[in-house]
Amino acid sequence: MKIELTLNNRRELFDVAPDEMLLDTLRQHGLKSVRRGCDTTTCGVCTVLVDGLAVPSCSYLSVRAEGKHVTTVEGILEEAEKLSEHFGDEGADQCGFCNPGIALSVHALKHHVNNPGEAAIKDALTGHLCRCTGYVSQLKAIKAYLEADEDE
């Protein structure tokens, strides 16, 4: 099936199978930041934004993305780099496998919640499994990033 969507602000055409998941379409397109973790909607490493909403791409049919805006971490690079500096400062950046998914969820949080506090950040982290940390360093890093972002 031929579908057209806007991927990281560029119109792209894809030929997808009816049961193909967005994760596979994006990875076949070379976007290896979108990762396959549990493949069952639990771990969050496959998170992408569809029309600004964070969704698990492992369980999102590619055909459903037709006409929509899809964003991966490559589409928010400047923002992700700033966030990763805070991750580094707090020691939240260990293997880094879960970082792209978290960066996209933080982006969505910033755009959907006014002045997100600790509870909102924890909520945004709930859908992400990190096997290196205990989430405290990530919580601190995201908090610092959001504060710095507000000051800019």
């Binding site: 639990t42 698990p56 909520d123 709930t126 859908g127």
Partner: peptide, 12 residues
């Protein structure tokens, strides 16, 4: 509703 998985899954 809020206790169902993470926001990513609740979005779909």
């Amino acid at each position: 509703i809020h206790g169902v998985m993470g926001v990513e899954l609740r979005n779909i």
